[in-house]
Simulated scan of single mutants.
Amino acid sequence: MNAVSRWGCRLTEGLMVLMLAAMVVMVFANVALRYLFDSGLSASEELARWLFVWMTFLGAALALREGGHMGADLVIDRLPRPLRRALQLFTLLSMAAITVLMLQGAWAQMVINRETVAPGTGAPVAWFYASGVVFAVGALLALGADIVAVLRGQPTAAERALADAPGEAHGATPPATRAQEAA
């Protein structure tokens, strides 16, 4: 990962921490107000839900960049290197195509809902759908980096994460074996 990518990942992680803290405070305050004073903050439920969606999408893009998503590589790891790379490239290109469709859909929803306001906060609903746009852009950047890595014969983010992992919990071919295959 280059310095800009590392900086972006750390910034995203920090933003997610702030979002989680805000969610905890809002939900706790709302529960306390309801039980102690028989009142509540109507905007807190909506805002907590929006923050949760944003955290989910940001976390998914971050996990994609860091190779953190689950994968079924039991069969793929046993294939010859050229076939394995071809399947990786096909998979990454397929994921990128699906992500482009998601980007188009999220963008369309943002445009459709730019004048619609949320009932609890009065905020434009387009901000809710912007989470999908931000995810898609981040995911396309991560997928693009992995596509370039595959084309150059370098390890993808998932392979780097696996190589950095202290143990092989899922029984895949150990990184040492992969390195020996490549030699």
Rank of each mutant, 00 (worst) to 15 (best):
A60S: 10
M55L: 05
Y35S: 08
W107I: 04
A165I: 06
A22P: 04
R6L: 07
T121Y: 01
R10K: 06
V117I: 13
D77G: 15
P175W: 02
P119H: 05
H170Y: 05
L18W: 08
W54G: 01
D164N: 11
M95H: 13
L20F: 15
A163I: 04
D73N: 02
A130Y: 06
Q180T: 12
L103I: 13
T91K: 14
L87Y: 12
A61E: 01
L101A: 15
T177W: 07
R85P: 00
A106M: 11
T177C: 06
R85D: 05
L143W: 05
R114D: 13
R78T: 14
G138F: 06
E159C: 05
M95Y: 14
M19C: 13
F28D: 07
E181A: 12
G59N: 04
V53G: 00
A126W: 07
F37V: 06
L140M: 11
F135Y: 15
V75F: 14
F28S: 15
V17F: 02
V100T: 11
A126T: 07
G120W: 04
R10Q: 08
T121K: 03
A123N: 05
L41E: 00
A149L: 00
Q154V: 00
V125E: 02
A108Q: 11
E168H: 10
A158I: 02
G59C: 03
Q104D: 11
L15P: 09
V134R: 01
L11S: 07
L64W: 01
I76F: 00
I112D: 12
P166F: 05
R78G: 09
S5A: 15
E46N: 08
G144R: 09
Q88L: 14
E13N: 08
E181M: 12
A142S: 08
F28M: 14
R178W: 02
D164R: 12
A32Y: 13
M19V: 07
T12G: 03
N30P: 06
P80T: 02
M26L: 15
Q88H: 14
R84N: 09
A139P: 10
L92R: 05
V24H: 03
E115A: 08
F135L: 10
T99S: 14
A108D: 07
S44E: 06
A142R: 00
A60I: 03
R34G: 14
